[in-house]
Amino acid sequence: MTHGAFPMTPFLKQTGKTLFSLALTFLGLLIVTFIIARVVPVDPVTAILGERATGEQIAEMRAKLGLDDPIWKQFGIYLWDVIHFDLGTSIRTREPVLEEVGRYFPATLELSTLATIFGVLFGVPAGVLGATRPGSVFDQFTRLFGLIGYSVPVFWLSLIGLLLFYGQLGWVGGPGRLDSMYDMMYDMKVPAVTHMILIDTALAGEWDMWRNAVSHIILPAGILAWLSMAYISRMTRSFMMNEMGQEYITTARVKGMPEGRVIWVHGLRNTMVPLITVIALSYAYLLEGAVLTETIFAWPGLGRYITDALLIGDMPAVLGGTIVVGAVYIGLNMLSDILYRLADPRAR
């Protein structure tokens, strides 16, 4: 038997390794965004000073922006700034990018978190039930439902959703996070604690406003949840099929355990191990998948921030947003890695 004297040590060591590799990945991300920033055809000097600047002004600005330094030095400065949470200044608003991103990000986070919660709540049971009755009507139905989720263009689905549930049926609120009536009251009555509208309104006890916010978020979150569910149910099904064929499942049955316990305790606990990575991946995917949805639902999130900046050539904002999304992505990867090792005793 191999009982380590300090069972946590290998775990910490592995976590350290993961951290190191993620730091490298983040460095790579910065190199890529730096390269993108340097080859951008929009000249940053002209972007700031406008077309009619004199040669003298341009030279002065180039020196100020450090564009005359050697490239490695420019990258060093860039790296230094990013590490010190300086992502530059938005050309459009002349505000620090990080501050703006901080304001926009919670809306995206709220949307994709809600969607992931729905996706897991429906996707995991659907996958498990499909795997335990392969070929059944239920299984066929979830497979098809999932395939449709995979195949449908999310921006189009959003438009159709708006047309149907808002335009025709009037069941949900339209674009935006609140009706315009509440929008005005919001800034006055609700203190911005988390910048997430459902949480903040609940904390302030503004239940009318909360209900209105729910009616607005339910459609975009539901659409994203469909995508997430498509992915999660499909992976759950395949993992579960694999686990249900394992010998320990037979052991549980030999012990006389009811089928429900065999499936939901023995099978699912083992399925959860690889599933953690899948859920994290789908969460990360929703964070960026929200780009298109946000554009349509006028959702003041990061995706919309980036696309808006993109259309007017505000590169610091685009790249800053990209770095933040990338960092969150990397962070989620790390989190799933750690959770994976916590869930699987063999990996500890």
Binding site: E247, T251, A252, V254, N270, V273, A343, D344
Partner: peptide, 14 residues
């Protein structure tokens, strides 16, 4: 009751 071939597979790993 039944004892199976390989405890590596017949015991639930988690």
């Amino acid at each position: 009751a039944m004892v199976m071939q390989d405890p590596k597979f017949s015991l639930n790993p988690v």
